[in-house]
């Protein structure tokens, strides 16, 4: 194993850690602009997180070790996911530990424990959030895996770096299966990262919140970790979409300079992804919980059509 690969690996994790609050800041800024408000600046999420780290933790009377353990676990799992996805280079050493199915399962761990933490404190909100989150997950996960399997079938591999290499070398071709998978992936990303129209990250209204309901009782450094992990998850989904469907610009040469160039491309891609995200979020209204079956059903339909057209048309 080469030393520079390990350097790139650590650099990528550092990039994910550092860039995720900026990305969220960018999305919030864009949102403010579209809605005609003044912005809090690109780096406001940093200030939020550092403030939370400094604050004392107020723990619910009934909270058990699960509640205290969950933020660390969620954070660790997200960092691991950040080390696996080929964002800067297609030759990451950690990429071999986990393929794309493991990646989905890693996010499932975070969700599983967050849902448990929601139930741990024993309020109605926590249970409501957990119940809804697990419901959405059980509808989103088949669609997610279908979308991913379509790409895996095309690349004949579930290994992320392999998929990226295959698509990279094939060059931009018009493949209906990949296009369908991409649309499905966008829809599922909205559900998985808790954006409008599935969940509203900015709301604390009792009846509509999902993710926020589970983490309502968190405070101090626990909340900071959860929030940071949430930001990383959003960034990772955007980066995953960018790297799977538009890998051009990623470092395929396996050098440090290539990775630094990939960083520049990454910023451009993320800026674009932020614009798309904000356009979707501004254009849509949050859906009723039971309309979500139709939303996620369309995502599943798209993914399935992708898989069908892989067999039928290609």
């Amino acid at each position: 194993m080469n030393a520079h690969r390990i350097i790139i690996e650590f650099a990528q994790i550092a990039v994910v850690l550092a860039l995720s609050p900026v990305f969220i800041g960018w999305v919030r800024m864009l949102k403010c602009w579209t809605q005609g408000r003044t912005t809090a600046g690109l780096f406001q999420p940093y200030r939020d997180i550092s403030k939370l780290f400094a604050k004392e933790v107020v723990l619910a009377e009934n909270a058990s070790w699960i509640f205290r353990f969950t933020p660390y676990l969620v954070f660790a799992v997200t960092v691991l996911a950040g080390g696996i996805i080929p964002i800067l280079s297609a030759h990451l050493p950690l990429s071999a530990t986990a393929d794309v199915i493991v990646l989905v399962a890693l996010f499932a761990i975070a969700r599983f424990f967050t849902a448990l933490a929601g139930m741990d404190i024993g309020t109605a909100f926590g249970g409501m959030g957990s119940s809804r989150e697990m419901t959405i997950a059980s509808l989103a996960e088949p669609a997610m895996l279908m979308a991913i399997f379509t790409i895996s079938l095309a690349a004949q591999s579930t290994s992320l770096s392999r998929i990226v290499q295959v698509i990279y070398t094939a060059g931009p071709v018009l493949k209906p299966s990949i296009a369908f998978a991409f649309i499905a992936f966008i829809l599922i990303s909205l559900a998985e990262t808790g954006r409008i129209p599935v969940d509203n990250p900015a709301t604390h209204l009792e009846l509509t919140m999902i993710h926020e309901a589970m983490i309502l009782e968190y405070s101090g450094r626990h909340l900071a970790l959860i929030e940071w992990a949430g930001m990383m998850k959003t960034l990772l989904f955007m980066a995953l979409g960018a790297t799977l469907f538009f890998p051009w610009g990623i470092d395929a040469t396996d050098t440090v300079s290539g990775a630094s160039l990939a960083f520049v491309f990454l910023i451009i891609k993320l800026a674009g992804a932020g614009v798309v995200l904000v356009l979707i979020e501004t254009g849509l209204a949050k859906m009723r919980l039971f309309r979500l079956t139709e939303f996620l059903g369309s995502a599943f339909l798209m993914a399935t059509l992708g898989m069908l057209s892989f067999f039928i048309l290609e």
Binding site: L174, K175, P176, A179, F180, L305, S309, L313, E314
Partner: peptide, 13 residues
């Protein structure tokens, strides 16, 4: 052929 199958996919959609 590629464009043809892509348009076919769009018709299906």
């Amino acid at each position: 052929a590629q464009i043809n199958s892509f348009l076919a996919a769009l018709v299906l959609v």
